[in-house]
Simulated assay, not measured.
Amino acid sequence: MRLLLFLAFLVVPVLEIWILFQVGSAIGGLATVGLLIAGSLLGAWLMRREGRRAWRVLQNTLQSGGMPDRELAGNIVVLAGGALLLIPGFLTDVFGLLCIVPFTRPLMRRLGAWFFERRIERLAATSPYANLYPTHQEPGPTPNGGRVVHGEVIREDRE
């Protein structure tokens, strides 16, 4: 993972500079700077609008008593998109806009969830405590001879 991060911090800026030179040679330097500024302004406006919308959805979910897992993930994706838009460059702007635009945000949220799920599973597998608490256990006999039965506890309050 450290190598991947190192390469990302090394490759992304070099790729951004290369793309800037390519776009600048095709449309001119002033137009390239104008395009970067326009992209940043559009991204800031989108982030503000979608951030407010995501915050309202989160508040409504909390007020209705629901679990805001999807809403929190959506807010994190909007925040990551905004951070990417702050970095000058076309490549980071494209990924930032993918995180902010409403119809691509669910895809980015699922991609992030998939990535973090794999990362957590890998960390759990390499942990020295991985064998103490198995994560996937089939119902069956326990060490003391009992049987595990999955179910639900329903408590009735008696007054």
Rank of each mutant, 00 (worst) to 15 (best):
A31D: 12
A124V: 00
L5N: 11
L20F: 15
R122Y: 11
L85C: 13
T104V: 05
I17H: 13
R52V: 05
V148R: 12
L5V: 10
L86W: 14
S40C: 07
L79Q: 02
E50I: 04
T104D: 04
E71P: 01
A125E: 10
Q59P: 00
Q22I: 07
R147T: 14
V153I: 14
L15K: 06
G151P: 05
C99H: 12
M1Y: 06
D69Y: 13
D69W: 14
L36D: 08
Q22F: 07
S25K: 14
L91Y: 08
V33D: 09
Q137W: 06
W55T: 02
E159H: 11
R56Q: 14
E16Y: 04
R110W: 10
L10C: 13
T61G: 02
P143R: 13
G65L: 03
F90R: 03
Q137L: 04
A8G: 08
S127D: 07
V12R: 09
N144M: 01
Y133L: 05
I19T: 13
R155N: 14
L30N: 08
P88E: 10
V14I: 13
V14H: 12
L58Y: 00
V57D: 13
A80M: 06
M108I: 12
N75M: 14
H136Q: 01
P102W: 05
I100P: 06
A80I: 09
L123M: 01
L35E: 12
H150Y: 09
G112Q: 03
A113T: 07
G51K: 01
I120M: 00
R56V: 10
I19E: 08
G34Y: 02
E156L: 13
Y133I: 07
G74A: 14
E50V: 14
L41N: 07
M47A: 10
L3T: 11
M47T: 10
T126I: 01
F115P: 05
E159M: 05
F116R: 04
L86Y: 10
D157P: 02
L58F: 05
L85Y: 01
L4K: 11
L42G: 04
Y133E: 05
L7A: 12
G29T: 12
Q137T: 02
L91N: 02
F95K: 03
F90M: 07
E16K: 09
E117N: 15
N75T: 00
G39F: 07
G39L: 07
T104N: 06
V57T: 09
N131Q: 06
R109H: 00
A113F: 00
T126L: 10
V94S: 11
M47K: 04
S64D: 11
P134L: 02
E138F: 06
M1I: 14
G151C: 01
V78N: 03
T61P: 00
G65A: 06
V33N: 11
C99D: 07
L15R: 03
